[in-house]
């Protein structure tokens, strides 16, 4: 036991481990905040669809420099790159992936919300189309224009997050802290509006509140969170991060505020637990966190059904 604590302490002396810890906790906190709203509004499917879109966008971001390079090579007669083109490629390669991933995901969030509102079935079909389409295109791009030697490794880490959280640079951490702060401040400022729109959209609209605008806000913040969480758990597991804490909290708590607070606590504790045990047992970070969330959900379900059967 003391051995593993020593091991942990020595790990935390590395800055990148501390970064990963801070970023992991912040992301989980943000993800859990909107989870309750998404589940109750039956918007969880949007979260799922968006995560696939983010995967497609991520692949696009990774392959654009490679694509330009290949195209330029094919066009140039000498078989060499002109310094200008090389400059563009270097510039694009140096850019943060976020520059492409964030706008694309935001745009799709808005699109999905629009179609989702018209009729249920059409909305579901649109999400399915978009998410599977994005997955296919993303994988195709990564195969056709590989940016590294290890394609399946790249794909796997985009899908499941694997180790990318341990390679964060200080500026990634700053960006993440800023985005998380934005999400939390927006959520607190609009908490009452988000409650009203979630509980009864028609009533809220009828009393003159711009419910469509707040729906848009919810979709935009969801997109932000998903892009943030890509780093931590990868695109396939984001939905779990958003939904499990909310579902677990809803089993036991009876007011909206307590559900939100509880799911935030569950999410942060599970993230801390998941990151630490992934360091100790060298398991993948994302899956370990999700596993912790799953266990909490199971425990809460058990407690709630026990207390119900007692009554």
């Amino acid at each position: 036991m003391s051995e593993s604590i020593e091991k942990l302490v020595s790990y935390f002396e590395f800055p990148f481990v501390r970064y990963a810890f801070i970023v992991g906790l912040l992301i989980s906190l943000c993800a859990s905040l909107l989870g309750v709203t998404l589940v109750l509004k039956r918007f969880s499917f949007i979260g799922d669809g968006l995560s696939h879109v983010a995967f497609g966008a991520m692949s696009l971001a990774a392959t654009i420099p490679v694509m330009i390079k290949q195209a330029a090579l094919a066009l140039s007669r000498s078989g060499e790159l002109s310094p200008g083109v090389q400059g563009v490629i270097n510039f694009l390669g140096g850019l943060n992936d976020m520059v492409i991933v964030l706008p694309v995901t935001l745009l799709c969030a808005i699109l999905l919300l629009r179609t989702g509102q018209n009729t249920r079935i059409k909305g579901d079909a649109a999400v399915a189309m978009l998410s599977v389409g994005a997955l296919a295109i993303g994988y195709l791009l990564m195969n056709r224009f590989p940016s590294g030697a290890n394609i399946s490794g790249d794909v796997c880490s985009t899908l499941f997050g694997s180790t990318s959280i341990l390679t964060l640079k200080p500026e990634d951490v700053t960006l993440c802290i800023i985005m998380a702060a934005v999400v939390i401040v927006v959520y607190i400022l609009f908490y009452n509006k988000i409650f009203a729109v979630t509980f009864d959209e028609n009533f809220t609209k009828a009393t003159g509140v711009n419910a469509g605008g707040y729906n848009l806000l919810i979709a935009v913040v969801t997109a932000l969170i998903i892009v943030l969480a890509m780093n931590l758990v990868g695109s396939l597991l984001i939905s779990a991060l958003i939904i499990f804490p909310a579902l677990a909290a809803m089993r036991l708590f009876k007011s909206f505020k307590s559900v939100i607070l509880c799911s935030a606590v569950i999410s942060v504790v599970c993230a801390a637990f998941g990151i630490i045990s992934s360091l100790l047992f060298s398991t993948p970070v994302g899956s370990t966190i999700v596993l912790a969330d799953l266990l909490v959900f199971a425990a809460f379900s058990l407690i709630s059904s026990l207390s119900r059967s007692k009554q």
């Binding site: 309750v36 009452n192 409650f195 509980f199 009864d200 708590f253 009876k254 007011s255 909206f256 505020k257």
Partner: peptide, 10 residues
């Protein structure tokens, strides 16, 4: 999951 007061306040 919401308390009566939360809903009335909304």
């Amino acid at each position: 999951p919401a308390s009566v007061r939360e809903i009335v306040l909304s």
